[in-house]
Each structure stands twice: as structure tokens, then as C-alpha cells.
């Protein structure tokens, strides 16, 4: 076992888990009805920014460390302040190419100013074959899952050799549309992070990235005959049935058990 994560933190994590389980297990069943009844309407994971060019870059880069309420609360700061803020964030760890930085800054200075331009009218969702799944992956997934799709231990699961991609044809689509929250085990490793929703991506982009992932990073070896190539139309039809990130986790559990 390597020293990452620190053994101390691991021990702590386990101790906290055990304690939680023991002292509160009884309360859980009693509270189940309340849980179903009072699920919050608006969740932080679903905070949306105004639609505009390169909005998806902000979704992709910023949500690794914090949700978008910080961006919303900062709305109206000067273009110079957004520029300085990006310097800060680069110091804290966000990785942006000079070209990406320019696009992020352009979006924030325009759409998060006090005088934002009008949001663009609906863009046609297009053809999955016209969208490059690898580009969608590189632009949207790598801040957390990393360019080699190996993830980060205990926080961001790998997308490489990940059998979750084949649990059901629609499972990864539902994860992308709704996000997923809670503890999961992938390849015998436990992760407890929050996958935010990526429903802002187009139907074609979501279909393309799932098709790309199912054929890359060693995942093709896990493929089976029940899984076909997904289409933008399938994504479109799934948008109608919105789920909580927790419900996606339950759906996952139902597919495993």
C-alpha cells in the first residue's frame, strides 16, 4: 500500500463511517418517508449559469473543487476581477490551457457581468456522428477523471476499465444527465464523491462521449451484446424523467444486485 492517501486519513474515514452506521442506523428507517417527501427542489449541484458560448467549460473546470454558487455570488464583478480570480484559481489548482483560459474569461466577463448579452436561442442538437466523443471527454471530464481516465483515489472513480459503463444501456446516460451522489465501489476501490449533472451538454454530446468511453481505455473488453451504440434520441427521451443524484445511485444499486 502506498502512502497515498495518508493511512491516518484512511483510518479516520473508516472510524467515522463505523460510528455513523452504528449510532444512526435505527433512525434511518423511521425517517425514510420524510426523506421521500421533503427532497429539496433546487440543489446546489444543479445551479445553472446563463447559457452562452463556453459555459460548459466553466461547468467542467470549476465544479471539481466547488459548486457554482461562488460564480453566481460573484456576478457583477469587473472583467479585471474575473481575470484576477482566474489567476487565483490557477494557483489553487485548476488547469487551463491559455486558449481555455481566454474562453472562460470571455464567458465570465460577459455573461456574469451586470449587463449580460442575451442567451443564444436553442441550438440544434445535431447528429452524434458529427460530434467527437473524445473531444467531449477531454473538454468536460478530465478535470476530475484525468486525461488517462484513471481518476483520483477515493474521490473520482476511474472511467478506464470501469464496468459501470455497461451496467445498463441507459445507466451512464442517466449519470451524465442527473449526476450521482454517494458511496460507490469500483474495481474494489471505494469512492465517495459527487458527480455533478452534465445535462447542459447536448443530446449528441452526451451520446458521443458515452460511445467513446465504452470503446476506449480498455472498456471495450468489458462490452457485452446487450449494449449497443447510444443515440441522441435516447438521451432526449431520458431527459423527460428527471432524477435526483441519489436516485441515480439507487438505480445503480438495483442494477448491481
Amino acid at each position: 500500500m502506498t502512502s497515498f492517501p495518508p493511512p491516518q486519513a484512511r483510518a479516520l474515514s473508516m472510524a467515522a463511517e463505523q460510528k455513523t452506521g452504528v449510532s444512526h442506523a435505527v433512525a434511518l428507517s423511521l425517517l425514510f418517508f420524510l426523506f421521500a417527501l421533503l427532497s429539496p427542489l433546487a440543489r446546489a449541484a444543479e445551479i445553472e449559469l446563463p447559457d452562452g458560448p463556453d459555459r460548459s467549460l466553466i461547468y467542467a473546470k470549476c465544479r471539481t473543487c466547488h459548486d457554482l454558487q461562488y460564480v453566481i455570488e460573484s456576478k457583477g464583478i469587473s472583467a479585471g476581477s474575473w481575470d484576477g480570480l482566474l489567476d487565483d484559481m490557477e494557483g489553487f489548482g485548476v488547469e487551463l490551457t491559455p486558449e481555455e483560459r481566454e474562453r472562460v474569461l470571455a464567458y465570465l466577463s460577459a455573461y456574469m457581468s451586470n449587463t449580460p448579452p442575451p442567451e443564444p436561442t436553442q441550438v440544434a442538437s445535431g447528429d452524434a456522428t458529427a460530434v467527437d466523443g473524445q473531444s467531449v471527454f477531454m473538454d468536460n471530464c478530465t478535470s476530475c477523471h484525468q486525461e488517462d481516465a484513471m481518476g483520483i483515489e477515493e474521490t473520482f472513480p476511474p472511467l478506464a476499465a470501469n464496468s459501470d459503463l455497461f451496467l445498463a444501456e441507459d445507466f451512464p446516460l442517466k449519470v451524465l444527465l442527473n449526476g450521482m451522489t454517494g458511496e460507490i465501489t469500483v474495481n474494489d476501490q471505494v469512492f465517495e464523491g459527487e458527480m455533478p449533472p452534465f445535462g447542459h451538454l447536448s443530446d449528441a454530446e452526451i451520446a458521443a462521449v458515452v460511445n467513446f468511453l465504452r470503446n476506449s481505455f480498455g472498456n471495450d473488453a468489458l462490452a457485452h451484446s446487450e449494449i449497443t451504440t447510444v443515440t441522441p434520441e435516447m438521451v432526449q427521451s431520458l431527459r423527460a424523467s428527471e432524477m435526483d443524484p441519489e436516485q441515480v445511485l439507487e438505480y445503480r444499486a438495483s442494477l448491481i444486485n
Partner: peptide, 16 residues
């Protein structure tokens, strides 16, 4: 040990 609870931190905290 960790995954056997069938409930996530967020879920648990929400319930609690």
C-alpha cells in the same frame, strides 16, 4: 465494511 451500509453520506446526512 464501508460500502455495506447501503446509504451514502449525503443521503444519511439529509435524513439526519
Amino acid at each position: 465494511e464501508r460500502s455495506g451500509k447501503g446509504i451514502s453520506r449525503r443521503q444519511f446526512n439529509k435524513l439526519a
